[in-house]
């Protein structure tokens, strides 16, 4: 109820009340770099496009993301199973990927299935 009330206030001001934590820096759909703060990843591995940021370690990413060794190092949402990636839409799964900082370490992140 409190959340509904807060959303009503936010919507009255024209603000976003999205349930997910997507933003221009991580998670928003994109077709080009203009749709994002920094990078737009496209292709089968990123269904509907994925705004993200470059990184060298997890410290460069938001709390909900890990830095993986793809595309020169990018932040992707961390996950425990496929259900954690459902908010991204169809075509996403929870997969093991090499960590950017330590290539011997694998981390689970949302990635195109």
């Amino acid at each position: 109820m409190l959340r509904f009330g807060l959303c009503a206030v936010l919507l009255a001001f024209g603000l976003s009340c999205s349930s997910s934590d997507v933003s221009r820096s991580l998670g928003a759909q994109c077709e080009s770099r203009d749709d994002c703060d920094e990078r737009c990843l496209r292709g089968d591995d990123y269904p509907d496009g994925m705004c993200t940021t470059s990184c060298e370690s997890d410290r460069d990413c938001p709390l909900a993301a890990r830095c993986i060794d793809e595309e020169g190092g990018v932040c992707m949402y961390s996950c425990g199973d496929a259900a954690d990636c459902e908010f991204l839409g169809s075509g996403w799964d929870c997969k093991d990927k090499d960590a950017r900082e330590d290539g011997a370490l694998e981390v689970e992140v949302c990635f195109g299935s």
């Binding site: 024209g14 603000l15 976003s16 999205s18 997910s20 997507v22 933003s23 221009r24 998670g27 928003a28 759909q29 994109c30 203009d34 749709d35 994002c36 509907d48 705004c51 908010f87 991204l88 839409g89």
Partner: peptide, 15 residues
Amino acid sequence: DAKCFRDRQSDLNCP
């Protein structure tokens, strides 16, 4: 500055 983005449901958000 640009602030709008499309969420995963393709809805435009402009915070």
